[in-house]
């Protein structure tokens, strides 16, 4: 509630400030003019949002599958862990914009695939790291106990390792979900969309180029809103699972 009031206070201050100091609209449009653009351009903005959402969702799902698989394999196999180590360092240290031209060359007939690949590069690492840390943090005593009583590795994985690792994995999911959007926007800035469909990054660029600052703010509002939505959706999931598993992590999530 306090957060909502703060946001409301900033918006009012912004509106009053623009009018009081007669700030030109090309420099800083008022919140009401941004709202007007949001309504008048709702159709085109929704189409762009839909495109960016598709890239975000595709890259996130791809990262979820590959990140969890690589994280788990790194936990069970030292060979995999040591083998992928240089690549995980590269994933963390190489700016995605520098890789984008290469991906455009590789996927020259498929701009969507190039964007998904770019965004995947940005959001996969937190999932690898979270899955590895999650499976690694499972109670070694329980693993010994399960082994002693001849419980199959599959049952141990399903009934003990997965639920134990889930809170950390969901933490990674929350971070990765936000990064998928960052990756999708960044990729479109660098690679474009191949002229077929236009995402939110294109709207931002065009508005800046035409000095239509209200349109720029409207597109920015949609991007931010989408980012916030992703964050809250995954935070809610994390909280629900932590409560269900009685792991005490829900307190930590609430504190974030």
């Amino acid at each position: 509630m306090r957060s909502l009031l703060t946001v409301l206070f900033v918006v009012v201050l912004w509106q009053v400030g623009c009018q009081l100091f007669s700030i030109p609209a090309w420099l800083l449009p008022t919140p009401t003019s941004v709202m007007q653009v949001l309504f008048s351009d709702a159709g085109t903005l929704f189409k762009s949002f839909f495109f960016t959402a598709k890239v975000t969702a595709a890259s996130f799902i791809l990262a979820l599958v590959t990140g969890l698989a690589v994280g788990f394999l790194s936990h069970v196999s030292r060979g995999v862990r040591e083998g992928i180590f240089p690549f995980t360092i590269l994933l963390q240290t190489t700016p995605v914009v520098s890789v984008a031209p290469l991906l455009i060359v590789w996927f020259r007939n498929n701009a969507f695939a190039a964007l998904v690949a770019c965004a995947w590069l940005v959001c996969v690492y937190p999932l690898i790291s979270a899955a590895y840390a999650g499976f690694r943090s499972t109670d070694p005593n329980l693993q010994r106990l399960f082994r002693l009583h001849g419980i199959s590795p599959w049952k141990s994985f399903l009934h003990f390792e997965v639920p134990s690792a889930l809170p950390m994995i969901l933490n990674g999911v929350r971070i990765s979900g936000g990064l998928a959007l960052v990756g999708a926007i960044g990729a479109e800035f660098v690679a474009g969309t191949g002229g077929h469909e236009l995402g939110l990054a294109y709207r931002l660029l065009m508005a800046a180029y035409n000095q239509e600052t209200a349109k720029l703010f409207a597109a920015l509002f949609v991007v931010s809103g989408f980012g916030v939505l992703i964050h809250f959706l995954f935070s809610a999931l994390e909280l629900w699972v932590a409560r269900k598993l009685r792991l005490g992590a829900h307190q930590a999530v609430r504190d974030v």
């Binding site: 109670d139 005593n141 329980l142 010994r144 106990l145 002693l148 009583h149 003990f160 639920p163 134990s164 269900k244 598993l245 009685r246 792991l247 005490g248």
Partner: peptide, 13 residues
């Protein structure tokens, strides 16, 4: 054979 550890090692859920 069964074993009891220093920590109870229970599943919290």
């Amino acid at each position: 054979v069964s074993i009891v550890f220093q920590e109870p090692s229970l599943l919290p859920w």
